[in-house]
Design a protein around this nucleic acid. Sequence first.
DNA 1: GTTACTGCAAACACTTTGCAGGAGA
DNA 2: TCTCCTGCAAAGTGTTTGCAGTAAC
Lengths: 157, 157
Amino acid sequence: MPLNKSETFERTEDLIGELRASGLKVTEQRVLVLGELAGDCTHPTAQELFERIKDRHPGISFATVYNTLNALERARRIAALDVGGPRRFDPNRARHDHAICDRCGSVRDVDPVDASLPDPMLDGFAVERIERVYRGLCSECGTSSEASNTDRRNEDG
Amino acid sequence: MPLNKSETFERTEDLIGELRASGLKVTEQRVLVLGELAGDCTHPTAQELFERIKDRHPGISFATVYNTLNALERARRIAALDVGGPRRFDPNRARHDHAICDRCGSVRDVDPVDASLPDPMLDGFAVERIERVYRGLCSECGTSSEASNTDRRNEDG
DNA sequence: GTTACTGCAAACACTTTGCAGGAGA
DNA sequence: TCTCCTGCAAAGTGTTTGCAGTAAC
């Protein structure tokens, strides 16, 4: 799967501004983490981001990448996706949905059906945001309907 | 949180029929697991179900409960929820949504806004089902807006 | 009789933390 | 200077598996 970096790479000074706006101290490691995630629509895991950053910055530790992602998520600068398997991260703060392949586990952005929130109050529950997840088979797994070598589900039972 | 068992306890013979229909061998342990989950709308974890069953059936092992839940999920008799933290299980096969509290992590069923599936095909992705998740604060956590003792999020960063 | 399931324990995968040193504000 | 961050390593939490014995069909 290609990285699908957007054409609009964020400048370092923008990344720094975003870290500051999130209430985080600006460090080289955090700029690297946010820069690596920004514009990446493949919803990478902490491990994947760590591997990529390590190539250019061998001294960085996994815990730092992990802690930075958690800090950015708490600050709502990025979103975390719990969809089974390791947690994935999403830099896109615009309202959007996700399509997840039951076979290979890939996650894809989907335009929201309607961008408006419904009732902000749901029988006592204060709705802050909505995530819609489409489950099924991605175009690659759907066409080759044999079991794929990247199969995440096992059989037996 | 109370168990919220529905009034309609399923009879053992119904449970057996469901196991057979799911292609599973019928064992006492599996009847216990399915029976414990059926009618429970609190979305328990494997650990929670294991604790409850163990009280009445001390010999059962966690792996058996866990494997049975996975087998039932593969057979689509129950649904698994990946919402952060340990995986939760849902016996309700009717189309419905979930509301998850950002503070205490409780999961509640929500009537679907519209029960109809949108396009079964989404730009090459074959949609099989849709999960909608409302995030926010449940009625208990919303009213007492101080940090709760069951807080799942930590602060710092 | 054959196959699948159980129980146990250990391995595995992922996440989180304690701590000492160091950098940011 | 004071606090927060980093890197390391270890611990914590949740999930999965190998295996020998056993029960379902």
